Every structure is written in C-alpha cells, then in structure tokens.
Simulated scan of single mutants.
Amino acid sequence: MHLQYLLPVALAAVAAAQNRTLAQAIAGQSSLTTFQSLLSAQPDLVRALSNASSITILAPSNDAFSKFLSTTDGKAASAQPDVVAAVLQYHVLNAEVPGSAFTTTPQFVPSLLTNSTYANVTGGQVVEGVLNGKTVEIYSGLKLKSTVTTADITFQGGVMHIIDNVLTIPPSDAVTAVDSQLTSLAGALTKANLVTAVDDLKDVTIFAPSNDAFKQIGGTAESLSTQQLTTILEYHVIKGTVGYSTLLIGGLANETLPSLSGAGLNILIEDNKVFVDSAQVTMADIIVANGVMHVIGNVLNPDNTSATPNPTATTQSVAFAGATSAANAPFTSGINPTTTAPAAGITSKAAAARQTGAIGAAALFGGAAMIAVNL
C-alpha cells in the first residue's frame, strides 16, 4: 500500500486515540484493572478528572499495586480511604507531559496533591521526571524510583503513562532524614526541639549533612548547647524557596539566600559541582512533604559564612575551626529507621532496588470488583 493511503489511516487512528475518554483509555489497558477499580471508588477525583485538561496520569500497573500490597506499609493503612485519595492525586500531574518531553535534565512537575495533610508546598506536591538512556524514570518520596513501561496513551484530557511502581507520597523532613540514613540530622533536630518547627514550615530547601559530615565535628558537636545547635541547624534551612537542583544550578547559582537563622547561605557552582558555602551537594532532590532536601558533605557554620570550597578537592575542610571528629555519628542514640530508602548515597544493590510504592497508602485494592469509571 502506498504512503498516500497509509497516512490518512494513521492520522485517523491518532485522532481517535485523542478523542477517547479517560475511562476508555484505562479500559483499553488490561494491566490497569486495579487502577480502574481504585479510581472508581473516588467520586470526587473522578469529577475533577472529568473536567480536567492538559494533565498527565502516571498509572501504576496491576503488578505495581501487587508489589505495594505485599509491603507492611500497604497492609497497615487498609482502612484509610483518605490516604488512597491522596495517593491517586499524587499520580495526576497538573501539566501534559508526553514521553518526548522528558530529557536528561530533571523536571519537577506539580501534581493534584494539594491536601495540606500530605503536602505543604505551593502549587501541589511534585514528582521528578528524568530520561535515563531511553527510559523515563519518575522519582517520588525517599528518592524511590518508578519506571515508565508504556508511554503516551492519549485521551481527551491529556496523556497517560503506565509505571511499574506506586509513587511514594513524600514524608516529613524528620521521617525522610531518618529513613534516608541521615540519623545524625534527625537526632540533632530532636535534641534541639526543632522537629515540629521544621516539619511545619512551608516551601523549604533543606541542606542535610550526612552522618559522615557530622562525624567530622562529632567530638565537638555533642558538647554544643541547645541554642548553639539550634542556630546551626536553622542555618541549613531556606524558608519560602523550594530550590530543586535545576533552580540551584540556574536561577540561584552564585546567589546568597537567607537561612532560617537569618545568616545568608551562598550557592556556588564550580566545575559542574554544586556547593553551599564550602559544602558540596552529594545527593540532590530528595522530595519532602514541604519542599526538597539535598544531602551535603559538611556541616555548615553560621559563624563562618565566608567559607569557600576547593572544587578540585575530593573532600572539603570542616567549617568549624578546631572541631574534633568522632568515630561514631553523634545524636543517633534512639534514632531508628523504619525502612531503608535508596537516598543519602546508599549504594547497596538491595537498597537501590527497594521500590515499594506509596508509604501509608491504604490496602483497599485487593478483591475489588472492576467498576466502570464515567469520565
């Protein structure tokens, strides 16, 4: 058959795909029966999606929900439909992002999750999308990864991608610190009575020292007064700006930003590395309930705001003159992770492979009859 005959047929097929409803698009995918049942049990979300345009749905497959339901988190919240609603809202992006729009530069796309119980960021909680080779990867809370397995299922209101893991609603700052093996930070926040104060802030950027960073000043850190520790920790928090990596490298590069302590933090880009004062960002973009967290290799010193990095060095000098190190990470007594997330530089294959899905989502998925979704 000649091209002139094939082209109208192809265009007609594209038009038909774009004119189908979301319900028809979902029903046409045999791997989305669980997602269909879940969605049909959320009439408010169904109504919202029926009127939505230019959206992207990240639809977990049946296997993704099965994996999630095998976890403790999935089973524990089986009677919480409000959590299920939040999880589903987090899977709907407030922008139309076809597969071709993802690049090697991360994108942070806001979702429909605006419920302040779960998200305290302006415009809705985000997901991170990035192209890795030919694969689109989606990162959610605790830096957990979902992969797009089927892209560009079009419908009247936008586009849908099937993903292989349920997204994780980003936990609070303190929970994220604990489960990302940033236990010194979590313990220090607890000692300084700052857990609630920091968790309750809106639109934050947190520069989170690793446990090794705290070890470098561990001999001195334990003797700090509560006020001294509070001031130091507040210097690691920017309030009112969610500085994802793309913003740090772009609009905030070589800028000084006010920290929660009042002292200014200097954002520097040197040799394609991101530094805050003299501390290098070693892992970027751990999404938290109220913003974003970046892991850094040194503890920042509000009394040494002029500290600058040596970009060619493997490690940076501590910012506290005369500080002594410790063999063990300080402030970690009684701080126990509830899970192990592939964040904070975890490199073990077991940790990196842990992609269990949305924390705390209800296990309402098993045994539900498939119900038509009227969108």
Score class of each variant (00 low, 15 high):
residue 327 A to M: 02
residue 327 A to F: 03
residue 316 Q to W: 06
residue 331 F to D: 04
residue 307 A to C: 09
residue 299 V to T: 04
residue 317 S to M: 01
residue 298 N to R: 15
residue 323 A to H: 06
residue 297 G to T: 10
residue 298 N to M: 08
residue 347 T to D: 13
residue 283 M to Y: 08
residue 284 A to R: 12
residue 296 I to E: 06
residue 317 S to E: 11
residue 344 A to H: 07
residue 291 G to M: 08
residue 351 A to H: 09
residue 344 A to E: 00
residue 318 V to Q: 06
residue 307 A to Y: 05
residue 316 Q to Y: 11
residue 303 D to W: 02
residue 333 S to E: 14
residue 321 A to I: 09
residue 354 R to Y: 15
residue 310 N to V: 12
residue 285 D to S: 05
residue 328 N to K: 14
residue 282 T to L: 00
residue 292 V to F: 09
residue 339 T to Q: 13
residue 309 P to H: 03
residue 353 A to T: 12
residue 291 G to P: 07
residue 321 A to G: 00
residue 323 A to E: 03
residue 349 K to E: 14
residue 329 A to H: 01
residue 296 I to S: 07
residue 283 M to C: 05
residue 330 P to G: 04
residue 296 I to L: 07
residue 291 G to Q: 11
residue 305 T to N: 03
residue 297 G to N: 15
residue 300 L to M: 13
residue 343 A to M: 05
residue 287 I to F: 02
residue 335 I to W: 11
residue 319 A to R: 13
residue 291 G to N: 06
residue 286 I to L: 14
residue 341 A to H: 06
residue 301 N to H: 05
residue 339 T to G: 12
residue 319 A to E: 15
residue 300 L to N: 09
residue 277 D to G: 14
residue 305 T to Q: 12
residue 335 I to G: 02
residue 319 A to M: 14
residue 313 A to S: 14
residue 280 Q to E: 15
residue 342 P to R: 10
residue 318 V to H: 05
